[in-house]
Amino acid sequence: DTLHVTQDGKHIELRGLSEEEIKLVEELLRRGRKVEEALKIIEELRK
C-alpha cells in the first residue's frame, strides 16, 4: 500500500508498506517522529 505524508512542507509518498506498517508509521508521526526515523524503524522491524 501507499501512504501519503506531508512533512516540513514536503509531500512524501511511501510505497510498498503493509497495512500494519502504515499504521505504525502513522502512529510514529503522530508522536512527533520524522518520516526518515519512522522508515528506519520499519526497516529494522523487517529484518
Rank of each mutant, 00 (worst) to 15 (best):
D1W: 00
D1H: 11
D1F: 00
D1E: 07
D1Y: 00
D1Q: 03
D1T: 02
T2K: 09
T2Y: 13
T2L: 04
T2W: 08
T2S: 14
T2D: 09
T2I: 14
T2V: 14
T2C: 12
L3G: 09
L3Y: 00
L3F: 01
L3E: 05
L3I: 15
L3T: 09
H4P: 06
H4Q: 09
H4T: 10
H4V: 15
H4R: 05
H4W: 01
H4E: 11
H4L: 10
H4S: 04
V5C: 13
V5S: 04
V5A: 03
V5Y: 00
V5Q: 04
V5W: 00
V5R: 01
V5F: 00
V5M: 02
T6H: 12
T6M: 13
T6R: 03
T6P: 06
T6A: 06
T6I: 14
T6V: 15
T6G: 06
T6K: 04
T6E: 11
T6S: 09
Q7C: 05
Q7V: 15
Q7L: 01
Q7W: 00
Q7Y: 00
Q7E: 15
Q7M: 01
Q7N: 05
Q7K: 03
Q7S: 08
Q7I: 15
Q7P: 05
D8I: 02
D8R: 01
D8M: 01
D8L: 01
D8V: 02
D8T: 01
D8Y: 00
D8Q: 03
G9D: 06
G9F: 01
G9H: 04
G9N: 03
G9C: 05
G9P: 03
G9Q: 03
G9K: 02
G9S: 03
G9A: 03
G9W: 00
G9E: 04
K10M: 14
K10E: 13
K10D: 08
K10T: 07
K10R: 07
K10P: 04
K10V: 15
K10N: 09
H11G: 05
H11E: 15
H11S: 09
H11R: 06
H11M: 09
H11K: 11
H11C: 05
H11I: 15
H11A: 06
H11W: 08
I12W: 12
I12A: 03
I12K: 04
I12D: 07
I12T: 04
I12Y: 09
I12E: 12
I12Q: 05
I12C: 10
I12G: 05
I12R: 01
I12S: 03
E13G: 02
E13A: 02
E13L: 03
E13R: 02
E13H: 06
E13K: 03
E13Q: 05
E13W: 03
E13Y: 04
E13I: 09
E13C: 05
E13S: 02
E13N: 04
E13D: 13
L14K: 07
L14S: 07
L14P: 06
L14H: 06
L14C: 09
L14W: 00
L14T: 11
L14D: 10
R15M: 14
R15P: 15
R15K: 15
R15H: 15
R15E: 15
R15W: 14
R15C: 05
R15F: 15
R15Y: 15
G16L: 02
G16W: 05
G16K: 02
G16C: 10
G16H: 13
G16I: 02
G16Q: 06
L17G: 01
L17W: 02
L17N: 00
L17E: 00
L17Q: 00
L17V: 04
L17R: 00
L17M: 07
L17A: 05
L17H: 01
L17S: 01
S18N: 12
S18P: 02
S18L: 10
S18G: 06
S18W: 08
S18H: 09
S18C: 11
S18F: 11
S18E: 09
S18K: 05
E19T: 12
E19M: 08
E19Q: 11
E19V: 14
E19L: 12
E19A: 15
E19H: 13
E19P: 13
E19R: 05
E19Y: 12
E19N: 13
E19I: 14
E20V: 12
E20C: 11
E20A: 12
E20R: 10
E20H: 12
E20Y: 11
E20L: 09
E20D: 13
E20I: 10
E20F: 13
E21I: 03
E21Q: 05
E21H: 04
E21Y: 03
E21C: 03
E21S: 02
E21M: 06
E21D: 06
E21G: 01
I22G: 08
I22N: 03
I22Q: 11
I22R: 09
I22T: 07
I22V: 11
I22Y: 07
I22W: 04
K23Q: 11
K23M: 13
K23G: 13
K23A: 14
K23F: 12
K23H: 13
K23D: 07
K23S: 11
K23R: 13
K23N: 09
K23P: 06
L24A: 07
L24N: 06
L24T: 13
L24W: 11
L24D: 04
L24R: 08
L24Q: 09
L24E: 06
L24I: 13
L24S: 06
V25K: 01
V25P: 00
V25G: 01
V25A: 10
V25I: 08
V25C: 07
V25E: 00
V25D: 00
V25H: 01
V25Q: 01
E26Y: 07
E26K: 13
E26W: 12
E26R: 10
E26D: 08
E26Q: 13
E26S: 09
E26P: 00
E26M: 15
E26N: 07
E27M: 08
E27G: 08
E27H: 09
E27Y: 05
E27Q: 09
E27K: 07
E27P: 01
E27T: 10
L28H: 10
L28F: 11
L28I: 13
L28G: 04
L28P: 00
L28C: 01
L29T: 03
L29R: 02
L29W: 01
L29I: 12
L29F: 04
L29A: 02
L29S: 02
L29Y: 01
L29P: 00
L29C: 04
L29E: 03
R30C: 10
R30K: 13
R30A: 13
R30E: 15
R30P: 03
R30L: 13
R30W: 04
R30F: 06
R30T: 11
R30V: 10
R30Y: 06
R30G: 10
R30M: 11
R31P: 05
R31T: 14
R31N: 14
R31W: 10
R31Q: 14
R31H: 15
R31I: 14
R31V: 14
R31S: 14
R31K: 14
R31F: 10
R31M: 14
R31C: 14
G32W: 01
G32C: 05
G32Q: 03
G32L: 04
G32F: 02
G32K: 04
G32D: 08
G32H: 09
G32I: 02
G32E: 03
R33I: 15
R33C: 10
R33M: 14
R33Y: 12
R33L: 14
R33H: 14
R33V: 15
R33S: 14
R33W: 13
R33Q: 14
R33G: 15
R33T: 15
K34H: 09
K34P: 12
K34M: 12
K34G: 08
K34A: 11
K34T: 11
K34R: 15
K34C: 02
K34V: 07
K34Q: 08
K34S: 09
V35R: 01
V35Y: 03
V35T: 03
V35K: 01
V35W: 02
V35F: 02
V35G: 03
V35H: 02
V35C: 02
V35I: 09
E36R: 05
E36L: 14
E36M: 12
E36W: 07
E36Y: 09
E37H: 09
E37R: 03
E37W: 02
E37M: 08
E37C: 08
E37T: 09
E37I: 10
E37P: 01
A38Q: 01
A38N: 00
A38P: 00
A38D: 00
A38M: 15
A38T: 14
L39Y: 04
L39R: 05
L39V: 14
L39K: 08
L39C: 04
L39D: 01
L39S: 04
L39E: 06
L39G: 03
L39M: 14
K40S: 12
K40V: 12
K40Q: 15
K40F: 10
K40P: 03
K40L: 12
K40D: 13
K40W: 12
K40E: 11
I41M: 12
I41G: 03
I41A: 13
I41H: 09
I41Y: 10
I41P: 00
I41Q: 11
I41S: 08
I42L: 12
I42Q: 00
I42S: 01
I42K: 00
E43W: 04
E43V: 05
E43A: 04
E43H: 10
E43M: 05
E43F: 05
E43T: 06
E43Q: 04
E43P: 01
E43R: 04
E44S: 10
E44G: 08
E44P: 00
E44F: 06
E44C: 08
L45Y: 09
L45G: 11
L45E: 07
L45Q: 12
L45V: 10
L45I: 14
L45D: 08
L45H: 11
L45R: 11
L45T: 12
R46E: 02
R46A: 09
R46C: 04
R46K: 08
R46T: 05
R46V: 07
R46H: 11
R46N: 07
R46L: 06
R46Y: 02
K47T: 13
K47Q: 13
K47C: 09
K47H: 12
K47E: 11
K47V: 15
K47I: 11
K47N: 13
K47D: 10
K47P: 11
K47R: 12
K47G: 11
